[in-house]
C-alpha cells in the first residue's frame, strides 16, 4: 500500500513513499530524535528549520529509493484521543520512551495496543528507549523492554539523540522492514492497479469513534 509511484520509464526502479508517525509522551525527546536524524543537530542554536513536526528524508536503500515523511504527534495526555487521526494510513510507527521515566514506557504500551487494534499487523512498530546517555538513572529495565517489544512483534532500539547513538540504525532498519511489508503486500495484490483501494484516502473525518481502516476506502463513516 505504500508504493506511491512506479518507474518513470524502463529501468528506473520504484520509489517508495512511507509515512511514519512519531508517538511518545512529551519530554521523551521525540523532537530531538528526529532533528538529529534529519538535521544532525541537537539542542543547537543554529537549527535552521522552522519546525520539527513534519520532516522528510530521502533515502536510497539497496538501489530502492525511499521518501520518508515523519509525522510528529502531540504527546500531551489531553490530545491522546486524537491519535487515530494522525496514524491512519501510516506504514510505520516509532514509539519513544525515556529510559529514566517508567510512566513514559507505560504510555508506549498503551499506544502499541491501540495501533495493533486499529491498523493490525500492516504497520511496522519500533519501540525506542531514548536518553541512553543517562544510563545511571535508568528506570526501565532493558530486559523488560525487549521482552515486551518481542511479545507485540515490535523491534526495540536504544538511542541517544544527545550523543547521536542508534538513530541512523533505527530509521534504516525501519525502512527496510517497511519495504519488505510493501513488497509482500504488492505480491499479495498482484501488483494490479487496484492496489491502493484502501490506501489512497489520506485522511478521513471520524465522527465518534475512529473507524478501522480495514473497511476499505469506503467513506460512509
Amino acid at each position: 500500500m505504500a508504493a506511491a509511484g512506479g518507474g518513470g520509464g524502463a529501468g528506473v526502479s520504484k520509489t517508495y513513499s512511507f509515512k511514519v508517525v512519531l508517538l511518545g509522551e512529551g519530554c521523551v525527546g521525540k523532537t530531538s530524535l528526529v532533528l538529529r536524524y534529519c538535521e544532525n543537530k541537537f539542542n543547537d542554536k543554529h537549527i535552521t528549520t522552522l519546525q520539527a513536526s513534519f520532516l522528510t528524508k530521502k533515502l536510497n536503500i539497496g538501489g530502492k529509493r525511499v521518501n520518508l515523511a515523519i509525522w510528529d504527534t502531540a504527546g500531551q495526555e489531553r490530545f491522546h484521543a486524537l491519535g487515530p487521526i494522525y496514524y491512519r494510513d501510516s506504514n510505520g510507527a516509532i514509539l519513544v520512551y525515556d529510559i529514566t521515566d517508567e510512566d513514559s514506557f507505560q504510555k508506549v504500551k498503551n499506544w502499541v495496543k491501540e495501533l495493533r487494534k486499529m491498523l493490525g499487523n500492516e504497520i511496522c512498530l519500533c519501540i525506542v528507549g531514548n536518553k541512553v546517555d543517562l544510563e545511571k538513572e535508568r528506570h526501565v529495565s532493558v530486559q523488560e523492554a525487549e521482552t515486551y517489544a518481542e511479545s507485540v512483534g515490535a523491534k526495540h532500539y536504544h538511542t541517544s539523540a544527545k550523543q547521536n547513538k542508534g538513530i541512523e540504525e533505527l530509521f534504516l532498519d525501519l525502512c527496510k522492514r517497511m519495504i519488505e511489508t510493501a513488497q509482500t503486500d504488492e505480491r499479495a495484490k498482484g501488483n494490479g492497479p487496484s492496489q491502493s483501494g484502501t490506501s489512497r484516502r489520506g485522511v478521513q473525518i471520524v465522527d465518534d469513534e475512529p473507524q478501522a481502516q480495514s473497511t476499505g476506502g469506503c467513506c460512509s463513516g
Binding site: K19, F54, S199, G202, V206
Partner: peptide, 25 residues
C-alpha cells in the same frame, strides 16, 4: 475531492490532519 497523494503523505496533508485534530479537539 482532493488529489489523494497530497493528503496521504505530503506536507499539506500533515497540516490538514492537524486541522482535523484541532476540530475534533
Amino acid at each position: 475531492f482532493c488529489n489523494p497523494s497530497r493528503l496521504m503523505t505530503g506536507e499539506d496533508g500533515y497540516y490538514f490532519t492537524n486541522l482535523c485534530c484541532a476540530v475534533a479537539f
